[in-house]
Structures are given as structure tokens and as C-alpha cells.
Design a binder for these strands. Sequence first.
DNA 1: GGGGCCAAGTTGGCCAGCCAACTTTGTCCG
DNA 2: CGGACAAAGTTGGCTGGCCAACTTGGCCCC
Lengths: 270, 270
Amino acid sequence: MGGTVTSSVTQLDDQEGQDGPSGGALYRQVAADLREAITTGAYGEAGRLPAEGALAERYGVSRGTVRQALAVLRADGLVTSRRGTRRVVLGNARVQSFSELLSFTHWARALGEEPGGRLESLVRRPADAAEREQLRLEPGAEVYVTLRLRTLSGTAVMVERTVYPPHVGVLVAKLPPDVVSHTEHLREHGILFTDADHTIDVVAANAEDAKLLGCRRGAPLLRERRRTTDPTGRPVEWSQDRYLPGTVSFSVHNSMVTSALSRHARTSDD
Amino acid sequence: MGGTVTSSVTQLDDQEGQDGPSGGALYRQVAADLREAITTGAYGEAGRLPAEGALAERYGVSRGTVRQALAVLRADGLVTSRRGTRRVVLGNARVQSFSELLSFTHWARALGEEPGGRLESLVRRPADAAEREQLRLEPGAEVYVTLRLRTLSGTAVMVERTVYPPHVGVLVAKLPPDVVSHTEHLREHGILFTDADHTIDVVAANAEDAKLLGCRRGAPLLRERRRTTDPTGRPVEWSQDRYLPGTVSFSVHNSMVTSALSRHARTSDD
DNA sequence: GGGGCCAAGTTGGCCAGCCAACTTTGTCCG
DNA sequence: CGGACAAAGTTGGCTGGCCAACTTGGCCCC
């Protein structure tokens, strides 16, 4: 069983996406190529991947680089990995890029839907205790709070309440109210999003939610709270998104080796 | 900035947990020690970690091993990581072990609550198309389906419907109905859980849910669907858990380098 | 005082090699 | 025919080294 798989890569080069740091890294190119091969079914449903050494030779890189690439796929849940056997294809789960997950606009476009957004309000006010905690601000600091209704091809699906720290908020405040993607605009102004913590649960719609989304007060909404930080670890956003049921779901993969998911009992916060 | 941090590890040894493979690996011990130091605040709120080289010297390992350890912490969202600067402490987020996330019993005990479970029904029947797809079974295969009501210190919080493939189901069927943790019991019989895919959304309670959980029919429930596989990649469980609102929430960390989370638009599945 | 420049420090990435642990396969023997 | 054993194949883990890319801080000059 040698090289029957039509390897589309002999020398790796070109193509630098806007997503992910140092997309020019060898191991990322190898990972991308293998991901492509796996999702198109080149190795079968539960097939076995070539050995690390074989891949190293095929791509003309060291075994260490191949291992780095395979670690990416393993973390994404595409392949298994255990000592003694070749890696096995787990699934062809489509994993989204980070920006696609953070930006409603990116996500909608990747889905083929037309994202829309209407800015309902934008206020500047002193941060409360919870906000100072989340955004790591000193007492007395001010925050910028936006309220936006998000639509997918015209229909309302989500209410988004975002709290920005001052250095980000001033940029948001200067935006014209019809800008669809705040995230994209902030990136162009040097605000980078690299890490995010998400918490997902269910809440009842309050009066404001109900009016905007067109549902009853008290109707259940899928809530995602998200705190995003920049490369230096400084919080740049604290957002609370409330989705109408049936519009979205969240998927996570985790394994023994990488587990970023956890389950929490409700406490009396918020 | 020398060695002011009281390093509790000069030679790394002893202590093998039941969780995680090869816990004796050096990089895991280093990671565990650093995690401990970070969560106890030894490096401050947004403090900087020692350089890789310094850590390598402190622990008596190579820089590569330290990098492996730090990759774990970075994936857990504990520290940032970018070229040119020392790593910065992101947060002290408590990340659960894998088994704690898969097993309701494990999770409850770690919380200090008393887990309970009542087996409502256990049936063996031919798998439908969706089940064959999820569990990767051939047409005509049978599955074992359990329905369990889960309690936390006496109060009902969740309804669990689990579908097992034959080779796992036979073990479950032999269990006495009062066994609290199926997961633990299965592990003792050689069924290992290593990878899981989770999907989280909201559904309305059906008549059965309502009766068991003591809520209205149509009341919103937080649903987690989970497919678990063993080390070889073979599905061993397909479960659907429905939580009463306000009892639990799910947390995920993701970053530019590791993103296992994704958001999906509802389709007409299920 | 401010801005630009340079050097030191730090992480990202890649390579080559070695051994241990484990799985799988096939052989041999009872 | 079945089980024990041996050998080959494969991944996990660790080391040591090298260079590039990037950040930070200090210095110098205007």
C-alpha cells in the first residue's frame, strides 16, 4: 500500500489566508492538505492514514513537522491517535475557523446566507462590578455597550449585547450605524481577537428580547456569553448573544488529550 | 526575576492519576505543576511566565518538553503564547478532566453533590437509520436504548437517553438497575471513552420529559447530544441529555491555534 | 521631550536522532 | 485447531540544536 493516494502536494507553497497566524508554516500546509484529503474521503470512512514516516517522505519534511500537523487534526477530532497503530479517520466534521466563530458576519457568509445587523443602541457609561471583572478594568473605568439585532437573510435570529473596554469602544463608537461587521472593522484598526471563552445555557426572553425577536416574554432563548481577548491577553469584548431556539446549535469536540470543554452547575451569577 | 517562585518540583515523580493516558509523561507533570502554580496565583493575575529556557532548567528537562507542557496550558486557555514575549497568564479557568465531562456521576461528585440515577427503561431493538449512521452499524444491527432520570442531591435535573451499539449494550443490559455510573462500570469491562463530539441546543420538553422532570410539556430544555468513541475510533455511545434550565451551563475555550468549537445553523435533522 | 534605531530576549518552527511502549501479524508448537 | 511467542511496524516521548520572526527596552540623536 504505497502511494496510491493522489498527493496533490509535492512542493508546498503559495496561498496565505487571512485566517490563522503564520499560515505559511509547513506543518499548517501539511495539515491543510491532509484535512482536505480526509474530508473528501480519500482515506475512507474509518480508514487508516499513512505512517508518519511515509507522510514525512511524501511532503519532504521531517517527522516532527508531520507530527505537528497531525496534532492539529487530532485536536479537531478528525483522526484518532494511539501508540502502536496508524491513525484512523474519525469523521469528516467540518471545523470552523476561529474568525468564523467570532464574527456573526463571517459565519453567515460562509453559510451562504446574507447577514444583517441593526444597531439598536450604543451607550457609554461606567462599568459595573461584573464588567470590570470580565474586562479587567480598574474602578471608575467606562465601557461602551452596544445592543444589536442580528438577522439571517432578513429574519431576526439573535440579540447581541456587547460590552467593550474604552480602547476598543472608542473605535466602535466612531462607526457608522449601518456597518455590518464590527469584528472585521476592528481588525482593520489593529484590534485582534485570538482567544475566547464561551459559556452556553438557556435563558428566558426579557421584554426587550421579546420585542426585538418577535417572541413572547419568557420564551426560551439559547444564550452564548463570550469573553474575547487579544494576543496580549487583554480582554477586548464581552458579549452576550441570545438566539431564537431552532436557529443555531453549538458543536464541540474534545478528547482525552485535549479537553477545552466543561460543564458547570448553575450558581447565582447573573 | 530569578527563582522567586517557590518551585515545588525539583525532581518530578510519583503520583499516577486514573485520568488521562500516560500521566507519567514528563511534559504532563510539568504541565500539572505549572497549572497548579498558575491557578494558585503564583504568577499573578496577568503575570508573565518564566521563559521556556528557564523552565527547562528548573525542571531539568529539555526545552522541547517544556514547550509540549505549555502547549497543553495554551490549549486549555490558561496562558497566551506569541512570538517575541513571555507567556502571559490568561485566567485561572478550571478545566475539567475528560471523564468528569463524560460521566454525570464523576461530575456530580467533583461538585460535592450526590449523583443519583433511576433506570426508567432499557430496550433492545433494531437500529433506525440515524442510529446506524451515528454508531456506524450495518443495516439490521440491533441497539440497546436506555432512558434514565438523573438527580443531583435528590432533585431531578436531567433526562438521559443513550443508544449503545451491541458490543457495549450487552454489558449495560447485564447491569443491575441501581448502578449509578454506567460509564465507570463500562470502563472496568474494557470499554474506553477517548473522544466525544457534543452538540448543544434548546428543545421543548415532550410528554415523557415533562413527566420525569416535573415540568410543563413544551417547557424549554438545554439539550446536549454526544457521540463518544473508543481509542480505535469505534462509536460506543450516542446519548441525548436534556437538562432543566438553570441547572447547568457549558463552557468552552478556543483560540486561533486550537478551535474545536463551531456554530451551526439548524437544519431539518432530528 | 520625542522619535528612530539597535541589541537583547523570547517564542515559533524545523530538523535529525534515539528509545520505549504498544499493536498487529505471522509463525511455531503443542 | 488453538494458544503462546516472536518480529515487524507504528506512535509517544524526549533531547539537542539551529535559525527566523517578533517584542521589548534602552540608547542616541535631533
